[in-house]
Amino acid sequence: MKNDRFEAIYSQGTMNVTEIWVDKETGVNYLFRHSGYAGGLTPLLDREGKPVISPITSQ
């Protein structure tokens, strides 16, 4: 089953990778970071501590 809910909009690095993913249903932006076998995902927050939300484009 293919999951098209998330889209990578930014990627940097090869061994130590930093990516920004957008949830296409809610518009919430997430920071994904991985290095080797370790990684983590967290929502991106603005200065007020609220999630960064991108406009949702229809497909």
Rank of each mutant, 00 (worst) to 15 (best):
M1K: 06
M1W: 06
K2G: 00
K2T: 06
K2E: 11
N3R: 10
D4H: 02
R5K: 11
F6S: 02
F6D: 07
F6H: 10
F6P: 00
E7G: 02
E7L: 12
A8E: 12
I9V: 15
I9K: 13
I9W: 10
I9L: 13
I9R: 13
Y10L: 09
Y10Q: 05
Y10T: 01
S11P: 03
S11D: 04
S11I: 13
Q12W: 14
Q12H: 15
T14L: 12
T14N: 12
M15S: 03
M15A: 03
M15V: 00
N16K: 11
V17Q: 06
T18G: 00
T18F: 04
E19A: 07
I20H: 13
W21H: 11
W21Y: 09
W21G: 00
V22D: 03
D23K: 06
K24N: 09
K24M: 06
E25D: 12
T26V: 03
T26H: 06
G27Q: 13
G27Y: 15
G27D: 14
G27R: 15
V28Q: 06
N29S: 11
N29V: 06
N29C: 13
L31T: 00
F32L: 07
F32W: 11
F32E: 11
F32R: 12
R33G: 01
R33Y: 07
H34I: 00
H34M: 02
S35L: 07
G36Y: 01
G36W: 02
G36C: 00
G36P: 00
G36E: 04
G36R: 02
Y37W: 05
A38P: 00
G39M: 09
G40K: 11
G40D: 15
L41G: 04
T42C: 13
P43Q: 12
P43I: 09
L44K: 07
L44R: 12
L44W: 07
L45D: 06
D46R: 13
D46Q: 12
D46I: 14
D46E: 14
R47F: 15
R47M: 13
R47S: 13
E48W: 09
E48V: 01
G49V: 13
G49Q: 15
K50E: 15
K50W: 08
K50F: 09
P51Q: 11
V52L: 15
I53P: 01
S54M: 10
S54A: 11
S54D: 13
P55H: 08
I56S: 07
I56N: 06
I56Q: 08
I56Y: 10
I56T: 10
T57V: 05
T57H: 03
S58R: 10
S58I: 11
S58Y: 12
